[in-house]
Design a protein around this nucleic acid. Sequence first.
DNA 1: GTCTATACGTCGATAGAC
DNA 2: GTCTATCGACGTATAGAC
Lengths: 207, 207
Amino acid sequence: MPDGERQPAVRGSYAKGVARRQEILDRAIEVFARRGSDRTSLRAIAEEVGVTHAALTHYFGSLEELLVEVYRESERRGGDGVPVPLDVTPTELVRRWSDANHEVQGLVQLYSTLVASALEEGHPAARRFATERFARVRSEIAERVRHNQSAGRIRADVDPVAVAALVVAASDGLQTQWLLDADAPQDAALSLLDQLLSNPAAGRPSA
Amino acid sequence: MPDGERQPAVRGSYAKGVARRQEILDRAIEVFARRGSDRTSLRAIAEEVGVTHAALTHYFGSLEELLVEVYRESERRGGDGVPVPLDVTPTELVRRWSDANHEVQGLVQLYSTLVASALEEGHPAARRFATERFARVRSEIAERVRHNQSAGRIRADVDPVAVAALVVAASDGLQTQWLLDADAPQDAALSLLDQLLSNPAAGRPSA
DNA sequence: GTCTATACGTCGATAGAC
DNA sequence: GTCTATCGACGTATAGAC
């Protein structure tokens, strides 16, 4: 390539750019934590962040991509990282996520909105986010189910993949019910799932 | 459920009005059944129905109330009346709803959208719809859990209310996962829930 | 490369004409 | 009872200032 070299990928001096992007993302998360997922228009977020709405599209491409990034970053901070040992029960894992979500106002609303968008056509960012998240979470849980089965804590006659799908579904659905009605038996239902999955041959948790 | 707020006008002879309203609702459901929940703007629906968008707000007050009515009416038709006997297992009940929903394009998307809206503030119609629906569905399932416990088909050491919340959550969550990924183990997870709930003292279904 | 200013088309909602 | 007209807000796209 003698002349006219074009290299759209890695270039110098965009360090400031990513830093600014991260700064905007931090502020946006703050806004969500404080006010929930209402008033989540580009213009409203931009006003609180202190830029124009066009600056947001410059960094994130679209509102939907911004929302996905906000959720991803919040989830990352909540401790959903990787320090969870393999021997925790799947419902305990889910319970940790649930607690982390409830600490940040509007995070569950945001998740619900993203998943709903993912089900419709024409929302590729939300679709990709939801698909990847479900696959990853199911995989993480299935792994722990197998581990707990080997340790004799979970009954051996159940399919780890099916259990994982069930646990994820229960977690999402129960959080929704709990948000709509704080009296909904969320904890009781999760404990119930624990009880149902526990190995009856082993020492029971309540004995 | 006492219906005390369904007057489109205070003046006389609104019989024709409700008839027209029903007619519009029928056409709107047809549109959803054919095209899913995309293009669900007031103007798009109005165009297909053959009126202007102002006429829709005249009859339904807002887009959200129209969407709620569309879902309610579709649900009413899919499960015509309430002829489901008390002795069906809760997961079988859920399976019937799931099958009915899959017959109508876009009904699950619409449900997901309404629930997501219900979680945010400033959406009273969706909030009321979701709250009432969850309460009703949990109650219907809990009733059947008790019946099946008496019959010895469901293990007696579980709380019917917690089971109901768990089953509803699992149903909603699994439908979402299935819509995003047809390979998600939806049927396997529901069968698993059946297995977990079955009374181990009774004759097992697979023995 | 960052960001503002501005404009376009569509949206839900409403007011008033007929 | 239904339409036309209009409003403010929305997401997106682009031109150009810095």
